[in-house]
């Protein structure tokens, strides 16, 4: 029952979701919305588990004085502080939105900005012309990059850049997407029919 129950439940929910895609029936639509509502309930409960997990993980690090435990102190303090100000002042006013706008948003922007440097370092490694494929990638990359700026238009390379993006690039992307689509469908069918049970353990 421990193994059969989830498989039967997965089959029923999977078939319901599949039917909802193909039928405008209000009965199936209502059941579909029920499943989505239940997902929100499950998410809410697991979010509590998540916060407990986060707290326990960092609390243990602080207790053990593990490497970088100071960061854990800041994490735990931030977690408690944000919960407290949200409960006292509500999330719409007071320190909560201020902390969000002036602490969290700039930190997120900082992480995103780091991407520019990582792109540079990754491009440097990728464009080292060690073999034919790397040389081909370097050539295509240089043409596309030049074609995207004014200089490319000046030297007449912009049309080549557009051609590379529209034809070889699009063809490769579509090839990948066809494979992805088939893979997704096959995985979904395997799970709905109970053939794929790896997520339940090998003995399932």
């Amino acid at each position: 029952m421990k193994k059969t129950g989830p498989v039967v439940f997965g089959f029923l929910i999977g078939v319901l979701m599949l039917l909802h895609h193909f039928t405008p029936s209000s009965w199936i639509g209502d059941r579909y919305n029920n499943v989505l509502d239940w997902k929100q309930v499950v998410f809410g409960i697991t979010l509590i588990l998540g916060v407990i997990s986060l707290f326990t993980y960092h609390w243990k690090k602080i207790e053990r004085r593990a490497e970088g435990w100071g960061y854990s102190v800041i994490t735990v303090a931030g977690l408690i502080f944000m919960i407290a100000v949200a409960l006292i002042f509500t999330p719409e006013r007071g320190p909560y939105p201020w902390m969000f706008d002036h602490v969290q948003a700039p930190m997120q922007a900082t992480m995103f900005a780091l991407l520019a440097f990582y792109v540079a370092s990754a491009s440097y490694r990728a464009f080292r012309a060690r073999n034919f494929h790397a040389a081909l990638l370097l050539t295509a990359g240089v043409i596309v990059m030049l074609g995207r700026v004014s200089l490319g238009e000046l030297i007449g390379i912009d049309s080549v850049s557009t051609w590379i993006l529209d034809f070889p690039n699009t063809a490769a992307k579509r090839g990948v997407m066809i494979g992805v689509g088939l893979g997704m469908t096959a995985t979904a069918i395997k799970i709905i029919t109970g053939i794929e049970r790896t997520y339940l353990g090998k003995g399932a």
Binding site: L49, G50, S53, Y57, Q108, M111, F112
Partner: peptide
């Protein structure tokens, strides 16, 4: 150890920062 599989944050770049750390 269940503590090795832990929750970080819903924030995209917050998650990236946590994993990088």
């Amino acid at each position: 150890d269940p503590n090795d599989i832990y929750y970080t944050t819903q924030s995209q770049f917050g998650y990236a920062a946590a994993v990088c750390g």
